[in-house]
């Protein structure tokens, strides 16, 4: 019985410690982000790595999601003779929800994990200590460029995902299900509002912050050699994904 309470205690202590660390690092990253020297080259490198290199993944994910959305809703809506609304439903769900969340999760898997592995390896091979010994703050040199890249690039990827998802839906509805292209197009944009686009973009910027910072923090506190790096990588992906899903709900509920 006692061990049950003990374990609950240990769990909550670890939880609060991790949360505290996360926000401390967020604060340190924010204060270093506005202070020179700025690592222009490093910022560019991370933006290419997180943004440009993620385009194929985003392409596949969002386009196929748009296609499946159209297929599924067409099937369902046909039963109540509401095929005309397929375009609106696909566009709304892609812009407001699916594109930001799916892009966030895919980039977490692709980039958040590699950030944790890279920084974790630097930790266990003393490269982090070497950075400090060379009078360079690791938060400034490693965290800031990555987090900035996340905040800037995720919205751009999401916009790309929006376009691809809507286009994928259009292709399936018109080519496969025989919807009228003109009607489908006008339906797609009929109920769409600029706010729908904005809500997705704001969310994705927050997701970009979450996935990069979590990757960096998990990597930074790696202990115990190669095994530790593996654990850090896994926990970066799991933690960031969970936070993204929770944050998604609350952002949707509170802000929009």
């Amino acid at each position: 019985m006692i061990s049950v309470f003990e374990n609950i205690g240990i769990f909550f202590l670890a939880f609060f410690e991790a949360t505290g660390t996360w926000f401390t690092m967020l604060w340190r990253t924010a204060t270093w982000a506005i202070r020179p020297p700025f690592e222009g080259r490093e910022w560019m490198r991370q933006m290419v790595r997180l943004g440009v290199d993620s385009i194929p993944v985003v392409f596949l994910t969002t386009m196929f999601t748009g296609m499946v959305m159209a297929l599924q809703t067409f099937n369902g809506f046909q039963r109540v003779h509401a095929e005309n609304f397929v375009g609106s439903v696909v566009a709304l769900s892609i812009l407001r929800e699916l594109s930001p969340v799916l892009v966030g999760l895919m980039v977490t898997g692709r980039v958040g994990s590699s950030m944790a592995a890279e920084i974790g390896t630097m930790r266990v091979t003393e490269q982090i200590d070497a950075l400090k010994a060379l009078a360079t703050d690791p938060v400034q040199y490693l965290f800031v460029p990555r987090v900035i890249a996340g905040i800037v690039m995720l919205p751009l990827l999401t916009i790309l995902g929006d376009a691809l998802g809507v286009w994928g839906g259009y292709l399936v509805a018109v080519r496969l299900m025989g919807a009228n292209p003109v009607v489908y197009q006008s339906n797609t944009f009929q109920f769409l509002d600029v706010n729908d686009l904005w809500s997705g973009i704001v969310k994705s910027a927050v997701f970009g912050l979450i996935l990069t910072l979590t990757g960096c923090v998990r990597g930074y506190y790696t202990t115990g050699g190669a095994e530790g790096v593996g654990k850090a990588t896994t926990s970066a992906v799991v933690t960031a994904s969970v936070i993204i899903l929770l944050a998604d709900f609350f952002l949707t509920k509170l802000l929009f």
Partner: peptide, 9 residues
């Protein structure tokens, strides 16, 4: 440092 700790990137 012990193993050099060179930045391998």
């Amino acid at each position: 440092f012990q193993e050099g700790a060179l930045f391998d990137s």
